[in-house]
């Protein structure tokens, strides 16, 4: 499956208070990471509706990373606990419909963990690269491709 030339698109949903700040720290610390991740900042992991993940795949993501504050660290106290409980269901649901765990990743990265962020992102990118393009979703996205152009 490994595809050396394939560059995956990874959509990351990160919380404003921990992971986004952690990713920022990675940048200001001049740590290197692969450029395949696109970050979307949300107020809290508790705000991440699973429909966001579906939208990511609809818009061409090959993999998704969801990341927020460590347990007991949430800026809003309990957002990440609620999120975790949802993920327990959602990842199983995705797996059941054929979106495997290798494409959907979760992590806790705090504001001071710039290094961890780089490791997590690189790890996820490598894993998804190994997995190859998400052919299944690409096929159903095709229905929305523009037809061969005929000028009106």
């Amino acid at each position: 499956m490994a595809n050396e030339n394939f560059e995956p698109k990874i959509t990351c949903f990160v919380c404003n208070w921990c992971t986004y700040t952690g990713a920022d720290l990675a940048g200001t610390s001049r740590l290197k990471q692969q450029p395949n991740a696109r970050l979307i900042r949300v107020p809290c992991t508790g705000r991440i509706d699973p429909v966001f993940l579906i939208k990511a795949f609809e818009t061409g993501a090959d993999g998704v990373l969801v990341s927020g504050c460590h347990p007991a660290d949430c800026h809003y106290n309990t957002g990440n606990y609620h999120a975790r409980r949802r993920w327990i269901f959602f990842r199983e649901l995705l797996n059941t419909v054929g979106i495997p765990e290798s494409r959907v990743h979760f992590s806790w990265v705090s504001a001071s963990e710039g290094k961890k962020w780089v490791d997590v992102v690189n790890g996820v990118i490598d894993k998804v690269r190994q997995e190859g393009p998400f052919e299944g979703y690409k096929k159903i996205n095709n229905e929305f491709a523009l037809p061969e152009e005929v000028e009106v």
């Binding site: 523009l146 037809p147 061969e148 152009e149 005929v150 009106v152």
Partner: peptide, 11 residues
């Protein structure tokens, strides 16, 4: 397309 909108007929 730039500032324009292009319409494309379906097949």
């Amino acid at each position: 397309e730039h500032d324009d909108l292009k319409l494309i007929d379906p097949q």
